[in-house]
Amino acid sequence: MEHDPTDPIHQFQITRIVPIQIGDWDFSFTNSALFMVLTVAVTTAFLYYTTRGRGLVPSRGQSITELSYEFTANMLRDAAGTAGMKFFPFVFSIFMFVLVANLFGMVPYFFTVTSHLIVTFALALLVIGVVVGYGFYKHGLKWLMVFVPSGVPGYILPLVVTIEIVSFLSRPVSLSVRLFANMLAGHITLKVFAGFVVSMSALGTLGVIGSILPLLMTIALTALEFLVAALQAYVFAVLTCMYLNDAVHPHH
């Protein structure tokens, strides 16, 4: 595979591992699919393995599992109340999936599943789909009242409702683009600075000395990217909880 080692875009490239073709659709098992499978497998294995002892006093691993479990539970309860707890498995899956997928992206040579817009957009659509579906299922047409804030004078109501609908429709876009753009931009920046180290080192002694600066930058950015990976998973999950609150309590 010949490519420029400092090319920051190369890491997002999808390659087929097992080509699968169904009709006109290409459903190949790609590196992206591989890392989705790895994300799920590793997360599930970790959660299962750390709770094997069912310790009354948790071990270190069990503490991590319990903390993430209770963290998500509190997050959902704060945003959507007790009635929202029926979505706990859904929110926990989304949070763990995005978190582990993001953190996997930090491992060199690993593919970042969430750096592709289609993946984050599919997740965001799933969230909005659950919100809309549950909203109509639970409240019927009354759920549409979520677009009509109470206490607004009648003459500006059409404007407010329009704004509410537009903002609701933009939710899947903002939700998916936020996560995707953060992961993409972070990884590109990281790769660009790391690439500087490589290309400057090739320029001789002075270049090697000069490459210390981008090297330090790369180290700092790596730390930042770990923060961003966790933070964006948290943001995605929190916003999911808040949108789910609309499905549970349409009158706000």
Binding site: I14, I20, W25, D26, F27, S28, F29, T30, S32, A33, M36, V37, T39, V40, T43, T44, L47, P89, F90, F92, S93, M96, F97, V113, H116, I118, V119, A122, L123, L126
Partner: peptide, 20 residues
């Protein structure tokens, strides 16, 4: 690769959700 990504996301996330 959109169809492939969506399909595999649906499979993996579905299995993940079910397991959890």
């Amino acid at each position: 690769f959109y169809p492939s990504q969506i399909l595999w996301l649906a499979i993996t996330f579905g299995v993940f959700y079910w397991l959890l």
